[in-house]
Every structure is written in structure tokens, then in C-alpha cells.
């Protein structure tokens, strides 16, 4: 029994960490219509950032500031934001697929940099040297994992609430207006270019936060963690959950992540021994089927966007 609880704690921690990245993407795509194909880049900036800022200096390593944890996380988020600002200046005027492939290129470049720039990022062997906060204080793996789950959950709630508030605020309406008709928004005296950039940076910072929590959990990061499949995973979670809807984003993350890893568990439990070597391949087919079937049954995602015009309108509406 304790085993099941322990596993669920672990599963939910990763689920919530990924949910945060999906929420960041929802701000960019669901609210603003920015097709960011470089999720892994900003997630990676946060993940590497937290270890570079919070980790200790190792031999052969140029960076490692050993900052206290909250500062390391803040630094990681800012690093993701800085990257997003530079990338955003060049790319946010692009549309749809053009933006996607341009930002995708950035993600490839970031992964490549992490793989090759050994003095800074540790190269392909990865980077460690980071004490998980409170691990020595709690000193029991189960309770530590539980405490970390609660911490991640609190962060998720905070991010969720901020995004919900943005969604219902005038700024959120502006984002949707730009998504639906940029020219109309511009004719109302708004500056779509600036707003798009703001949404891009803020969304990317949330992804960076998710990356920071991810690297904290493993106390290790390597280029293997930020390969393109991550971007696809995050995107499938949003689309399956329902873009434009924060609840859908979190829900979609848990569903897709459960399907992604759960399919492997189910197969090992029920597949005959001779099949075991092929389980990995069959697992991928099952993952594909889960995504395709969900979208066939609910093409707009599990929880599609509900358009809320404004909080005040919602309030006057007779229930």
C-alpha cells in the first residue's frame, strides 16, 4: 500500500512539474495564438539555470555560483526569460508554422550548446552538484518526496491562479483579441507586437520555472532531458487537454503522462514473457493510439476553451 502511495507521489510530482510547462504554453498558444515550437529550449534554460546558479563549482566547470535555492530558481526563471526576450525579438512577428519552426531551431541550438559546450554545461555527460533543498532536514525519502510534491503543487496553484486572473483581466482579453484578429486589435490602439512579445516572455518564464523544478527533483540535468520529444510531449498534453483552458491543460498533462508511462506498466503486467523485448515498441504504438483516439473522440481536447468575456459580465449573468 505504502508502495502505491509512494509511486503516486512520484508520478504526481512529475505530472505537476510538466503541468506548469503546459500552463506556460497555454498562455502562449491558448491565449495568444503563439505557436512556440521551442518549449524544450526554455524548459532547458530553467533546468540548466537552477543547477548553474545553485550548484557548487566543480573542477573544469566555469560556472556554479552556489546561490541559496530561492535565488537559484529566480535566476533560472530569469535566464529563461532572457532567452525568450532575445528569441522573441527575432521571432514573434512570425506567424503560425513559421514561428514554430524558427523557435524549434532555437530548441535544437540550445540542446546542441548544452551537448557541446562542456566548460559551461558539462557537455553530454550532464551536470550535477546540487543539493536538493531540505533533503538533509527531512532525511526520509518518502517524506521528502511528499514535501516536494506539496511544494510543486503550491507552485502549480499559484501559476494557475495567476494565469486564470490574466485570462479574465483586460490583458487576457487583449491577448485573445490579438489571437483572433490582430488588425482589429491594432485599430483599437493596441500594440500587438509588444503584447505578443510579453506573452511569449512570460509563458517561457513559466516553462523555465517548470524546468527548474524538474532539475531540482533529479539534482541532475543532461542534454538528454531537453531533446525535441519533450516539446512534442508538452504540446500533446495541451492539445489533448484542450487549449485555452487552464484546467484542461493540467488535466491533459496528467492524462497524457499517465498514458505515456502507464502503458509501459500495463504491458509489463499483462504481456507474456516472450513479448517483453517488444514492449517498448508496443508502448509507443499505444501512446500514439491514445493521442489519436482522444482527438478523434474530442477533437477540441478533453476540456475545450470556455470563453469568458470578463469577470463582471460573468457576475451579472443570471445563473
Amino acid at each position: 500500500m505504502i508502495g502505491i502511495v509512494s509511486y503516486l507521489v512520484f508520478f504526481l510530482t512529475m505530472g505537476f512539474v510538466l503541468s506548469i510547462a503546459v500552463l506556460g504554453l497555454n498562455l502562449q498558444w491558448g491565449y495568444t495564438g503563439l505557436f512556440n515550437g521551442g518549449v524544450a529550449a526554455f524548459f532547458g534554460a530553467g533546468a540548466y539555470g537552477v543547477i548553474l546558479f545553485g550548484g557548487s563549482n566543480k573542477a573544469g566547470q566555469l560556472i556554479g555560483f552556489g546561490l541559496p535555492y530561492p535565488f537559484a530558481v529566480a535566476g533560472a526563471v530569469l535566464l529563461a526569460g532572457l532567452l525568450a526576450w532575445i528569441v522573441g525579438l527575432i521571432t514573434t512577428h512570425l506567424r503560425h508554422d513559421y514561428l514554430a519552426i524558427a523557435t524549434f531551431g532555437v530548441a535544437i541550438a540550445v540542446e546542441n550548446f548544452a551537448r557541446n559546450a562542456e566548460p559551461i554545461t558539462g557537455g553530454a555527460k550532464g551536470l550535477r552538484g546540487f543539493e536538493r533543498p531540505f533533503e538533509t532536514v527531512i532525511n526520509d525519502p518518502f517524506w521528502f518526496n511528499l514535501a516536494y510534491l506539496i511544494f510543486v503543487f503550491v507552485v502549480l496553484i499559484i501559476v494557475y491562479n495567476i494565469l486564470e486572473n490574466i485570462g479574465q483581466s483586460p490583458f487576457g482579453r487583449l491577448l485573445r483579441a490579438i489571437r483572433e484578429d490582430e488588425v482589429a486589435a491594432q485599430s483599437l490602439g493596441k500594440s500587438p507586437a509588444r503584447v505578443r512579445l510579453q506573452a511569449f516572455i512570460f509563458g517561457s518564464m513559466i516553462m523555465g520555472l517548470s524546468g527548474a523544478l524538474y532539475a531540482t527533483f533529479y539534482a541532475f540535468i543532461s542534454p538528454q532531458d531537453i531533446v525535441p520529444i519533450l516539446t512534442f510531449q508538452i504540446w500533446s498534453m495541451l492539445i489533448v487537454g484542450g487549449s485555452g483552458n487552464n484546467k484542461g491543460a493540467v488535466f491533459g498533462t496528467l492524462i497524457v503522462w499517465a498514458g505515456w508511462v502507464g502503458s509501459g506498466w500495463v504491458l509489463t503486467q499483462f504481456a507474456p514473457v516472450e513479448m517483453q523485448l517488444y514492449i517498448g515498441t508496443i508502448q509507443f504504438i499505444m501512446i500514439g493510439l491514445i493521442i489519436v483516439l482522444t482527438l478523434l473522440i474530442r477533437p477540441k481536447g478533453l476540456l475545450p476553451e470556455k470563453l469568458i468575456i470578463s469577470r463582471s459580465v460573468a457576475r451579472v449573468k443570471p445563473e
Partner: peptide, 25 residues
């Protein structure tokens, strides 16, 4: 021998390992 695929994806491998340890003991 209970065999799980890692997909060479760290988070998938870690989850598989955790399931083996917690659920299959």
C-alpha cells in the same frame, strides 16, 4: 526479470524505475 523501456528519455526511465521499486518491490 521485469523489463521496462526507457525510450532513452530520462523522465520515462525514472518513472519506470520508480514503479519497479514501489509497485513490484
Amino acid at each position: 526479470l521485469i523489463l521496462r523501456d526507457t525510450q532513452v528519455d530520462p523522465k520515462v526511465g525514472v518513472d519506470a524505475a520508480k514503479a519497479l521499486v514501489d509497485l513490484d518491490k
